[in-house]
Design a protein around this nucleic acid. Structure first.
Lengths: 239, 239, 239, 239
DNA sequence: CATGAATGAGACTTCATTCAT
DNA sequence: TATGAATGAAGTCTCATTCAT
């Protein structure tokens, strides 16, 4: 187990995450031949994501990852020097992209902050919470102690921006007179943590989760959550 | 700390009631060897809890568990046939006791349901959320797919009773006229999931979590959360 | 594995084989109390015989032997310092006794040598070949290389006397004019080896051996064998 | 020596026909790595035969087998999933080839059945009885109870065909008027078992067997045995 | 004497990693 | 670049043996 971070803290695999955004917006100059070559590391990372999410770092099997990616075991080590490097690449590649997608929604929003929150949460669920990328959160929750560098990375790249975003939204609600004055940090976490929990829970339990009778419907879960957070459980007189 | 010996510590531990006959005859010199025989499984389970929470199932090392427990490698296998059995014992032993402790609070409560919720959550945090037993949740989140039997056990022994308890509390609030009518299941999850998330988060990140500046203060987190959930973020006129 | 014979070539267990003959012919002076005590090692040896024959030396399990003998594992080591010592005791105890029983038959026999051979073989089958003691032969066949000392012991105590006995019988037949002159050593082995083979074969295959249709009937096997060996397969004119 | 590569070397060896495509294109430089890949299983099986015959299944050590084969411990498990699989491969590989070699002799034999028997036995001794393949018989005698599947396999592939062959020979002798009428099954066993016993005995005792003075000479043993079995020990008048 | 808890060397097996091709 | 045969460290588990009771 990696108790101390190895000296080479970044994977030396050639260009395996810089073009993540490129593939999102396909550049025009990419020749077909090299696109296939450049795709290899991504296919491996995608395969590794699934395996790591299923089995955890220690439980994941490089051979199984290779098979999922349709390559031989040796090929994995052509692109990633060690299993740890591959793991880091998996986390890094799957953290940046979805978050960027999500954040754009909250900018330049017209309408009530309540609607912004509802829309933002549904958007997050669609883009992240319901996708395999959500497994990254589950993964880091388990491996944070063994990969403090990744935990920090997660804090910097996911938590901090996410919290910042939440603060902006709440501040907007206060400024517009919709919300009362609150502690933005704490409230941001209160507001968002149920979604994170639900995402991790569904990653863990799959769709066959008989928690309180049937499986949890995310849409209903979010709507109810927002309703509670904004209006409260207690009776309130009509304004 | 799970040092309070749970009644049923494991399904695989062999006959450890051999010296009940010895304790029947009131010898004053307590035999050290057989005293240990009773204490050993608990010590091992306690050590294993820490190791499993830190490293996950696959990453945990039986030798390391033995060392933490102050016994030799072989001794672990005297009490638990396989690593999996030990893992199951860890989950089972650390689920029943804390849960029972917590549940007693909600019975026969006198006072407002709001106070009951606040008190109940602080109690849970004290009894479970802030203890290593919370690591069990983090653990199961990762290993549920590999231990479906344990996942089911967790559902039956933790999730279902917990949800039932939440429903009772909410129903009480409705019956007493404090709360408006809500979907009990969904609302129960909305209400409780932030605490679960916080507990798992702190298990993962330890005390060095610079999430939104300083570490999260659980007391503040809970109080703010309850305030939001009951009264909402939005401005409300005085009743 | 014991590649070289340990320095203490004889088990140091107290009197575990000297009284083998004593138990065969009960001495009058044995007090009841100590008989029970003296019986322990024999019970262990008997249990060990079964286990060793079933599993071989390396495959045998001391705990299983103890259970078969109805004692605890530690007790085995009270009487036999090591597993090797126990093995040696098993071989020694089960070689001497049956052989002595058998040999007495051939002395002072009145009648034709043909009848002596037939009777002697049936006797051997009853006393040895069909009993668990026959497993010793199978055992030594496997472990001879690892226990050269025992192999030599077997040669000295079993093979040599047995061959000597066969020679005497054959010589008697020649002297009485029944048999033609033959090489006594080779013929002795030719004559006896089928019985040894059958005994080992049945030890190995149990009763469920579908060799040539039904199981081999030892009585028929012996009678046919003697008939062939004495009269031959070829047609012969009546004398 | 079982260095002649048997056609089917193992059921568990993985795809070793991968380089059939390479051999299709006639490269002059034979690739050393993949050459080994074809040779390895046979080398390992040959090494395992020796180890298993010496030590038995439980006593055999995979590391020692690897060393005998000149490979590392892990390589053994590249070709054979478990020690049991390796054992099965050893038995299977060393049964088919020698038996086929032997059986061909008895077909289309011209001459007396007596000569056929003598020649057949000497042939068997040369092809099987005096080779390490004979150790398989000794091995199965010990391990039959633990590997019932292999015992059955041995019955089907060795015992039954061998017995069938013996029956054919005896029937031929009867048909040609050489032999009297006998029970073919029992007589077949009587006729052949001394050779089996001698083979196993020499496997067990090696060359240092001081049975009846010097080591047993197999040729003399067989000739004497056939002489006895055909003509009998008793005096017989000239025909 | 008898027990059985405890030990630790050693067994089989896995798997990340290397490297010749 | 891609492969997969080969490696050996490390892991789980077994079991002969010890020893306090």
């Amino acid at each position: 187990m990696p108790q101390s971070p190895p000296p080479n803290h970044s994977s030396t695999a050639p260009n395996q995450q810089t073009d993540t955004c490129q593939s999102a917006r396909p550049t025009l100059v990419t020749p077909v031949r090299s696109r296939r070559k450049d795709a290899r590391p991504h296919e491996i990372v995608a395969a590794a994501l699934a395996e790591f999410v299923d089995k955890g770092f220690a439980g994941a099997n490089v051979q199984a990852i290779a098979k999922r990616a349709g390559v031989s075991k040796g090929t994995v080590f052509v692109y990633f020097e060690t299993k740890q490097d591959l793991f880091k690449a998996v986390v890094r590649d799957n953290i940046a992209a979805p978050l960027n997608t999500w954040r754009d929604v909250t900018r330049n929003y017209r309408g009530s902050t309540r609607d912004l929150i509802v829309q933002s949460m549904h958007q997050w669920w669609t883009d992240v919470g319901s996708t395999p990328a959500a497994g990254i959160s589950k993964l880091l929750m388990q491996e944070a102690a063994n990969f403090p560098e990744l935990a920090q990375f997660y804090q910097d790249e996911v938590v901090a921006p996410g919290m910042s975003n939440m603060r902006d939204i709440l501040q907007r609600g206060i400024d517009l007179g919709e919300f009362r004055v609150m502690d933005l940090d704490i409230t941001g976490m209160n507001l968002f943590s149920p979604l994170l929990f639900l995402a991790m829970w569904q990653q863990a339990m799959g769709d066959k989760q008989p928690i309180c009778g049937p499986a949890i419907d995310a849409r209903q879960f979010i709507d109810n959550h927002v309703s509670l957070m904004l209006d409260g459980m207690c009776h309130r007189p009509a304004i």
